[in-house]
Write a protein that binds this DNA or RNA. Sequence first.
DNA 1: GTGAAAGCGCTAACAG
DNA 2: CTGTTAGCGCTTTCAC
Lengths: 336, 336
Amino acid sequence: MSAIADVARLAGVAKATASRALSGRGYVSEETRRRVVEAAARIGYVASPNAASLVTGRTQSVGVIIPFISRWFFAEVLESLEQALLAQGYDMTLYNLPAVSDERERIFDFFLARKRFDGVISVGVELTDAEVDLLHRLGRPLVGIGGDIPGARTIAIDDVGAARLATEHLLSLGHTDIRHIGGDQADQMDFAVHTQRLTGFNRAMQAAGLPIDGCFTPCAFTIPGGYEAGLALFGDPRRRPTAVFAASDEIAIGLIIAARDLGIQVPSELSVIGIDGHPYAEMFRLTTIEQHPRNQARMAVESLLAALAPDADPAMLGLRRAPTNLVMRSSTSAPR
Amino acid sequence: MSAIADVARLAGVAKATASRALSGRGYVSEETRRRVVEAAARIGYVASPNAASLVTGRTQSVGVIIPFISRWFFAEVLESLEQALLAQGYDMTLYNLPAVSDERERIFDFFLARKRFDGVISVGVELTDAEVDLLHRLGRPLVGIGGDIPGARTIAIDDVGAARLATEHLLSLGHTDIRHIGGDQADQMDFAVHTQRLTGFNRAMQAAGLPIDGCFTPCAFTIPGGYEAGLALFGDPRRRPTAVFAASDEIAIGLIIAARDLGIQVPSELSVIGIDGHPYAEMFRLTTIEQHPRNQARMAVESLLAALAPDADPAMLGLRRAPTNLVMRSSTSAPR
DNA sequence: GTGAAAGCGCTAACAG
DNA sequence: CTGTTAGCGCTTTCAC
């Protein structure tokens, strides 16, 4: 016997009335509602979301696909997504997407293809055309964070602009020997971020009339990645730059640790600027440009839920961008 | 019309047969199965997990509750859980549990209480009795990682033993002025971990006939937390210890950064040992005891799924512990 | 404002 | 091996 039937019987009403009273949809007299709620409480009634979904088509659940969990930016996004979603009564099913592979295909074909979610949020994943297609075919809102997805709302910072700003900051301090350490272009995982930040760097350098040849060094997008790159780059004092723009704070922090290991004073002998707003920035006296992961997450949820609302505003289908602020977390300095 | 009915009609069989052919349960002739599968493929049939769950009672989904996402250990556990679960056809719904609060209560009463999950995995959360009760009342397997949950399978390292081992390592190098920097006992979030690691430290010290008064300093369980503690602890050269056992690698790394900022050589002037197996350990020449988050996660999933299997082995209901290895990631040294 | 009835899409008996 | 029959627990018309 369906559980709600028990509640109904106990309250002396029909199943339909109990349903209305409990879900808040439809007209129920105050007196009846009270009786139903009380009856439900008495027998500890909990609705079956499955049964409800089967008829309403809504699952109150959203799928999130993300390529990393342990990198600061992604973890931060995840935390905020979960919080924002939960506050609206949605829960979050997480798919940690590997590089294109059988496993990945399975996530799309087996898990995402089913009508399990009211919407999908894709965080910093470079999706293939087929994947985007499949997601659209679900007929449910799709929102991206960290890069464009054809036909979907997207939240992102202006990566080219942020990189340019960072580089210009170093230029304005008088530096001319500046390097960019960033992600490998061949690394599929991190959206166009790598390319865009390199582009911003190149533009700023060229606008200042400086050469860009040999200024870029790729490395893994992590603290150890930056550390390795730093050991290699700063090893020879005669070829050491006076300033570095790192494509992420994690790389920047790795560079600083390496510099210190080599006895180089930061920031007096070497200026480093990064992008992210990483919480370790202060400890390392790192100048950084905030990427506001929490804001981006909140905006994504807001945008997704707006699309889910009965009176969805088609205007929200455009591209939205989170603000990009140059935040001087600590001192960079002029070259000596 | 139910989608599977379309498939059935197209294949010229009954719905039940189509169901059997597609789900693999029950007898179907090879010929029939082929026709059904083909028909399904032709119209792009995807089963509705909701409808299936409604009748089978299984959701192929597990709930995971966890207090942090951005700390290394937790992120690592999460990644492994997701991977192991996915491989078995389960997806993972994530609840980032805040300290006891209305939000937290809502997670239990509203989200977890519904029969949405085939099982629940609790990672490093100190659950209240009421919460444990609610989880048990679901009648579904519950597995814990990182600390005991009454009546549930639990995977954890031996925290007291690991702490003791770490301290003994420092003692064996000849150190006698050793401090323990760990989590605040009042911090509810981190299970009994704080207390247990402090206990292990105290036991080792006492066994060596050393005093423990004033040897413990609490701090936040993060790199910045360790950094702050380090600045305070190492500021006065006359009161500086020769070795520190940090309750986590993150604290240890913070301590090392602080020490370096103060011009102290690590490890020659100060030995630091931590627990975790953090990937930054090598960069910081940190000695650490591995906590194997990935192993623990895999064991948790294994244990959960075993309980879900039709022939569940009641013997698995016991407490299991992951191996604790003392790994010398790099050099610690004797006091000078 | 409330009740009766008709499903949502699927699987599990049970015959055949 | 396959078809028929009953629901799983809920929401939603549509009358009253």
